[in-house]
């Protein structure tokens, strides 16, 4: 396709999220149940290690000196918004979709360098 291209939901919520790995206080954290990687504002110390780590440049710094706010910020798929991600709702051409998919993990491409290597877990060990 030629012409302008728009990116949305640019955080890919990587399986091995380098931002989570880089965060020294676990403010950037993956929720074990939803799998979503989010920043916990209250914990974030604004050290920008996540910005350094993210290979997509998906993390920005949100700050307000007067409010003493200085935290990392990223797409969280509009968590808590009843009608889902705002970008999907706003897109007039339905170019953006928000859906649950059962991605077959075995098709994952192995990325050298960033540790995006899929590891199969032992399901029997997880059943308590």
């Amino acid at each position: 396709m030629e012409g302008p291209l728009s990116f949305s939901a640019n955080c890919r919520i990587c399986e091995h999220a380098e931002c989570v790995e880089a965060c020294p206080v676990a403010a950037m954290w993956r929720d074990d149940t939803t799998g979503l990687v989010r920043v916990e504002d209250k914990r974030c110390i604004g050290c920008w290690m996540c910005i350094m780590a993210c290979p997509q440049g998906s993390i920005t710094n949100r700050q307000d000196r007067d409010e003493g706010l200085r935290v990392a910020d990223k797409c969280d798929l509009c968590a808590g918004r009843d009608s889902g991600p705002a970008c999907v709702e706003a897109c007039p051409n339905n170019a953006l979709l928000y859906e649950d998919r059962d991605e077959s993990a075995k098709d994952l491409r192995t990325m050298k360098g960033s540790m995006h290597v899929f590891i199969e877990s032992d399901d029997s060990a997880n059943q308590d």
Binding site: R12, I13, C14, T34, G35, P55, E103, A105, L108, M111
Partner: peptide, 14 residues
């Protein structure tokens, strides 16, 4: 593409 084909993974499905 290399990065974008790395899909979202639900840990429960892994």
């Amino acid at each position: 593409d290399l990065i974008y084909t790395n899909p979202f993974i639900d840990l429960e499905a892994v």
